[in-house]
């Protein structure tokens, strides 16, 4: 199962990493998530998800350069791996195929 299925929040995090391109590190991901979803993204949760994604090798990470900010501690930047991209695309396709078979009237008026 591992590596094939994406949880809802995992997918969001993965998408955010992809969106942030070169600036994807934990705090920035949290902020971006909050901005787009409108719900509070706790660092603890995001951190755990990042760790899990890396375990599933959907993302990879490297440490940046030291700066005087953050008490001199380096940032860990994330980027989406090939497997991650495949998983994202697959998730999107699943959704779209489902959207396509919904008769138009069924969801009308709910927007």
């Amino acid at each position: 199962m591992k590596g094939t299925n994406l949880g809802e929040f995992e997918e969001l995090v993965l998408l955010t990493i992809a969106a942030l391109v070169n600036e994807a590190y934990s705090v920035a991901i949290c902020d971006e998530l909050e901005k787009h979803t409108g719900r509070a993204a706790k660092l603890g949760v995001v951190h755990a998800v990042l760790n899990r994604l890396e375990e599933k090798s959907l993302v990879k990470s490297h440490l940046g350069d030291a700066t005087s900010a953050r008490g001199g501690k380096r940032k860990r930047y994330y980027e989406v791996t090939h497997a991650g991209k495949v998983a994202l695309v697959k998730a999107k396709e699943v959704r779209e195929s489902l959207w396509n078979i919904i008769p138009g009237f069924n969801l009308e008026g709910s927007l």
């Binding site: 934990s26 705090v27 660092l43 440490l63 900010a69 953050r70 008490g71 501690k73 380096r74 860990r76």
Partner: peptide, 13 residues
């Protein structure tokens, strides 16, 4: 291997 980044995050917050 997690320590430095985590310390940094907490410092930033």
């Amino acid at each position: 291997d997690l320590l430095e980044d985590l310390q940094g995050d907490l410092n930033e917050y």
